[in-house]
Write a protein that binds this DNA or RNA. Structure first.
Lengths: 102, 102
DNA sequence: CTCGATACTAAGAAGTTCTTAGTATCCCGT
DNA sequence: ACGGGATACTAAGAACTTCTTAGTATCGAG
């Protein structure tokens, strides 16, 4: 049984944000094997099992969401990670400058 | 065999930052079983195996480093995650306000 | 060169996820 | 109300991964 449920919570949020109509379709975007994608994704969404890292990399790519987002318990930091991913290079630099001056 | 080597790279950086003299001692801080901590940690540092999530949670706590840091490929974002962890609540709020205005 | 500490490896034991084969539930159209 | 399709969910064994044991290798200090 999976220890924490960080991944399940973030998967659900990312799915909602992307407006994906089923758990299984999240797995299909990650190019997981069609025949088992539905129970497998359900196991992740219900945190019955934790996906191994290489699987989580595929899912993160499929959802176009930074990998560390799915391992982040802190909601504020999760939000920051998400927004960082949408910035252009100049904005990223600005943000890093700002944090150094705090 | 482990897919990526994100974790290994971040473990090494966190270890150096904390000034810990051996791979095994990182595992001891995480309260891993003494008898197998040395090969086990070596497997993580060399990315022969990937620690399961519940183990990585312990290691992150032992190193007083945010968990998502160890799953972050992007160096800029890794840096941001690290620094976010050291801010007080007021500073975190300032940072989140700033990113929204970008 | 020897010692202690650290790094590393192979291979089987132990534990986990992944697949198969379903059932359950929800919602919509008739 | 009923049937059908889509989605959600579960048990249990197959397949695969990590974890443990039992070492060897390497490095630096004395």
């Amino acid at each position: 049984m999976a220890g924490t449920s960080i991944i399940a919570k973030r998967l659900q949020q990312a799915r909602e944000r992307a407006g994906i109509s089923s758990q299984a379709k999240v797995g299909l975007l990650a190019r997981l094997q069609v025949s088992s994608v539905s129970p497998r994704m359900n196991q992740y969404f219900k945190s019955k099992h934790a996906p191994k890292l290489s699987t989580m990399v595929l899912i993160a790519a499929g959802l176009k969401t930074p990998l560390p987002y799915f391992y982040c318990e802190d909601d504020q930091l999760a939000d920051l990670i998400l927004k960082f991913g949408s910035l252009d290079e100049a904005q990223k630099k600005q943000l890093l400058d700002f944090v150094d001056k705090l």
